[in-house]
Design a protein around this nucleic acid. Structure first.
Lengths: 147, 147
DNA sequence: TTCCCCATGTCAAAATCCTGACATGGATGA
DNA sequence: TCATCCATGTCAGGATTTTGACATGGGGAA
């Protein structure tokens, strides 16, 4: 019964593997999305807005794991490109609900196919039975760390 | 036989879960290492150098999934803090081998305990049998993406 | 009502990282 | 030998992200 840590090699640790996989995914998405004129945070933002229209800046930030300030500049970029729309003011509260424009929806749909191809490559690389377990394991780790 | 993608919900995708887990880990390490005066890339660099002394800038960059240029500034910071040493010139070749100083080794050892505690939290959050499979799955995905 | 607390949006400054580029040293093949 | 190619270290510039801070709006408790 070997203890989970410390392993004899740093590259054997879970954190290292996690970072490696995340870096590989990020790199692949970066490259694919560049051809569509989008960055990874921008794409994540569009995808989230397509699924849940009306999300605010802070909510989008939490959903994409960045700070409010970072998401703010992302939204500005998307707004300048006419991919999303956001009211200047609101009747109730302070949160400004964002929505996809028609251009945004179209752009998302074409970029999505490229991203889904990447994800399919990832998923097909592992045994089909293992996928569900992998997802729950990732969730468990994230929750354990307060993610 | 449902296709692996597209799922009905973006947050169900592997990429999203992967990013979430990686972000949670990054945040926890960030917070823990700050108390030791280290950033995550700096810690990763020290850990790699402790295991394989003499690694060059480019090798360290590949090992930590950043660019040569980024690793260069990390090394400068570590050098200014007297945590690593690097010769100004070399007899053979162009790569400059880096080594931990005594201070660097000490700093690494105390920071390591904090990081290992985080990783232990992560590992203990999932069934013990699942760990090995998780590691190989992460590797498979990374390799499939050319990581 | 009024006060306090929290969340939100935003600004400014700094830190971090990446892209593009260039010069150097070694190795490979003609 | 020499020329070409690859990897490395480094510089400059810009883009992205974060930290810190501040003002505003809403909700809850006294």
């Amino acid at each position: 019964m070997a203890p989970p840590h410390p392993a004899d090699d740093v590259t054997e640790h879970v954190g290292y593997r996690l970072k490696r996989a995340a870096a590989a995914l990020r790199g692949a998405m970066d490259k694919a999305l560049r051809e569509h004129g989008l960055t990874v945070p921008q794409y994540a933002c569009l995808e989230l807005l397509d699924e849940r229209p009306g999300l605010s800046n802070a909510e989008l930030a939490r959903g994409t794991f960045v700070t409010r300030q970072s998401m703010n500049v992302v939204l500005r970029g998307l707004q300048d490109a006419d991919l999303i729309s956001r009211p200047a003011t609101t009747d109730h509260g302070r949160a400004l609900p964002a929505h996809l424009t028609e251009r945004g929806r179209e752009r998302l749909h074409v970029a999505r196919s490229a991203v889904y191809a990447i994800e399919r490559t990832m998923v097909e690389a592992l045994p089909r039975r293992r996928l569900a377990a992998l997802l729950t394991d990732l969730d468990r780790m994230a929750e354990a760390l307060g993610g």
